[in-house]
């Protein structure tokens, strides 16, 4: 059953990647990265269980942490860029 979940995760990652590549607006890409990040966290946890070494779950935790911080960084940059463009237009 875990293997089925792993395959499902891979499918979702492929779809998220397609959205990241296609994404007309920038926010679609950020959303795709966010989905991709949480899926990677799950994929790592599932890999740990498939390979029978569950003590490597710290890596999944680091993933979640890094994913959150990079999303906040991207959005912070974007808020900065958005305001700047509006000021640029004045």
């Amino acid at each position: 059953m875990i293997i089925a979940t792993a395959i499902a995760l891979l499918v979702v990652m492929v779809l998220a990647l397609v959205r990241a590549l296609l994404g007309p607006t920038i926010h679609d890409r950020i959303l795709a990265v966010n989905v991709f990040g949480t899926k990677t966290v799950l994929l790592i946890s599932v890999i740990c269980f498939i390979s029978g070494r569950p003590e490597f779950l710290d890596i999944a935790l680091v993933y979640a942490l890094i994913n959150f911080v990079s999303i906040i960084g991207v959005l912070k940059y974007f808020e900065y860029q958005g305001r700047d463009e509006r000021e640029g237009m004045q």
Binding site: L17, R29, F36, T40, I44, I59, V62
Partner: peptide, 28 residues
């Protein structure tokens, strides 16, 4: 943004290869 995804993908590849410390570092 895609470079970020590239980093995530290569880190999970390292994980599936059993290179645990390297996946940790590449993720960070």
């Amino acid at each position: 943004i895609l470079a970020g995804i590239y980093g995530l993908l290569s880190a999970s590849f390292f994980m599936s290869m059993g290179a645990v410390d390297v996946a940790f570092t590449e993720a960070a």
